[in-house]
């Protein structure tokens, strides 16, 4: 049963990822991204990383995809799609697909990492206590740097949107 669920979520994740690439509509692509992220979170659960699965859903599905949908609807890209424009070059697409398929095939055929049997190792990602002790001892400096990064990003977004509305003139908002 567990194996069936894992297979299902693996196929689901990859299929929805294909949906992101193949959908013409940006809103549908964002929805496929959301489903694909849910599949990845399920795989995280299968890997006993419960906290990371929760955080992935919270940050990506909750914040990032919502932001994407918000921007797609704010900009109304659908109405601006020009008909009859040339797509990507056929040769370029074929070469890209061939390179990627070759890489994956090499990986499937040659990539054989020795792994311990399941259950031989304790799952470190399952315990919340380990995250806390790692983050606040070994990784204390990166945590502070990341906090600073978030502050800088927030300031950057404020400056970007402010400058634009000052320079763009009175265009609505």
């Amino acid at each position: 049963m567990s194996s069936f669920l894992s297979t299902f979520f693996a196929v689901f994740t990859v299929g929805c990822a294909l949906g992101v690439v193949l959908n013409r509509n940006a809103v549908n692509a964002a929805m496929c991204l959301l489903l694909s992220l849910i599949g990845v979170a399920a795989l995280f659960v299968r890997l006993d990383a419960y906290l990371l699965a929760f955080l992935l859903l919270l940050v990506y599905a909750g914040a990032v995809v919502t932001l994407f949908l918000f921007i797609v609807m704010l900009l109304d890209v659908q109405g601006l799609a020009q008909p009859g424009r040339r797509g990507p070059g056929v040769a370029g697409t074929v070469i890209a697909i061939a390179l990627l398929a070759g890489g994956i095939a090499t990986f499937v055929l040659k990539g054989r990492l020795a792994t311990p049997p399941p259950g031989a190792l304790a799952a470190p990602g399952a315990s919340l206590k380990l995250y806390a002790s790692e983050l606040f001892t070994v990784y204390l400096l990166p945590v502070q740097v990341v906090g600073f990064l978030l502050l800088v990003a927030m300031l950057g977004v404020i400056v970007l949107s402010k400058k634009d509305s000052a320079a763009g003139g009175r265009d609505g908002d």
Binding site: G87, P88, L100, G103, F107, V108, L113
Partner: peptide
């Protein structure tokens, strides 16, 4: 059906990465 080894997860990861990369290349 789903071997619970690192190779399986790395394959899924590589597939996702390749699909994303393909999207960056072909979408406009």
């Amino acid at each position: 059906m789903f071997p619970n080894t690192i190779n399986t997860y790395l394959l899924i990861s590589a597939l996702l990465f390749a699909i994303g990369f393909l999207g960056v290349l072909v979408r406009r």
